[in-house]
Design a binder for these strands. Structure first.
Lengths: 196, 196
DNA sequence: TCAATACGGCACGTGCCGTGCCGATAGGGT
DNA sequence: ACCCTATCGGCACGGCACGTGCCGTATTGA
């Protein structure tokens, strides 16, 4: 078989990424050394450097390799419910161990390494954003939301608060919090001053 | 004078922080070494380690020492205008060189070092948040916003999108963007479908 | 004048960096 | 069945920054 060459290559690549993830979870990304990753993976350092030019890019690949299922939006006709489902799923993945700390460290590294920042945007943020915007666009086409609804801004106002909690205050992102954000965006902060 | 001891001490402290900021701007925080900071400040390494237990905490102090004027909210009776002024000022400071990259690196470091994260929250984020919430509370007391307006959520929805742009997409935070965020929070995403 | 404290300079052992070199190994081409 | 070549693991290297000792000095308050 002519793929033996490639599969052999891929086996090492996966072993290295797995070792990187394991070590990152054990000692934290800050103390992660390529030397330790290579040893853990049973591999020479060259084999790592031949594939990744920096620790950050290796870590990016390793973390993104976990995005198995993907986080695409359903379309049940109820845009708020669909968003809630995806946001809840994302928050439970990215806001809790084991992926939470990894994702957090990845964004932290992106603040120091513009190459990582660019790759993270291109390979994860932008596709994810595009999917959400497509769902919002569908809701607008279906008349579920107003024509003058600013979809891009809505996306920022849905994502921003979650990232703020994840990266700054480090408060937990509960289902209730997601509900409140959704309601604020789609119903307003003071929905029709209720008679009480 | 009995303060000679203290002033001498403070002089070195300030020299070290200034050297750290200079070097961070020159080579980037990622390549900032305590060794280089000490040399630049004309100081022994001990003198640095005696004051700060880690590079991150030194950098935190250095960056926060720039917060000279502070960012407190005026109260002109128009809460949206007051928020806009403070947010614009903050965005111009924290979103542009030289403070932008420094602040960004500081938050990045906070993702790797929980001590830095805690100190950043306690010494900058929380006071800043409290000031904004106080301004919002005043607006509620003055009847400018509805009694059922969720102030904490409003703060998150104002701050979140700005941090999202600063840390994730790295898009510029323009005055127009701030206006759109303010309008979305205070008037809703689809304010009373206007007759046009 | 004297004791105490903080200092700058220097050197040390350690850990990891990124890069060479080597001999071994495993596939693919013929 | 053969060799050729790319890739591999292992090892060693120089370099850098870490954090910590030690030493002689300077500044300060008693």
């Amino acid at each position: 078989m002519t793929d033996s060459r490639a599969s052999r290559h891929d086996n090492r690549t996966e072993a290295i990424m797995r070792a990187a993830l394991d070590l990152a979870l054990e000692v934290g990304y800050a103390k992660l050394s390529i030397e330790a990753v290579a040893t853990r993976a049973g591999v020479g350092k060259h084999t790592v450097y031949r594939r990744w030019s920096s620790r950050g890019l290796l870590f990016l690949d390793a973390v993104l390799s976990l995005n198995t299922g993907g986080l695409s939006h359903p379309n049940t006709g109820d845009v708020v419910a669909d968003l809630r489902e995806t946001m809840t799923k994302a928050a439970n993945l990215l806001g809790h161990p084991p992926w939470g700390p990894l994702y957090q460290a990845l964004i932290g590294e992106a603040q120091h390494d513009s190459e990582v920042a660019a790759a993270l945007n291109r390979r994860f943020i932008e596709p994810q954003t595009a999917d959400t915007l497509a769902r919002l666009k569908a809701a607008k086409d279906q008349g579920e939301i107003a024509p003058d609804f600013d979809l891009d801004l809505a996306f920022d106002m849905l994502s921003g608060p979650l990232y703020y909690r994840l990266l700054i205050t480090q408060q937990p992102i509960t289902d209730d919090y997601i509900d409140r954000v959704l309601q604020a965006v789609f119903a307003g902060m003071s929905p029709k001053p209720q008679t009480r």
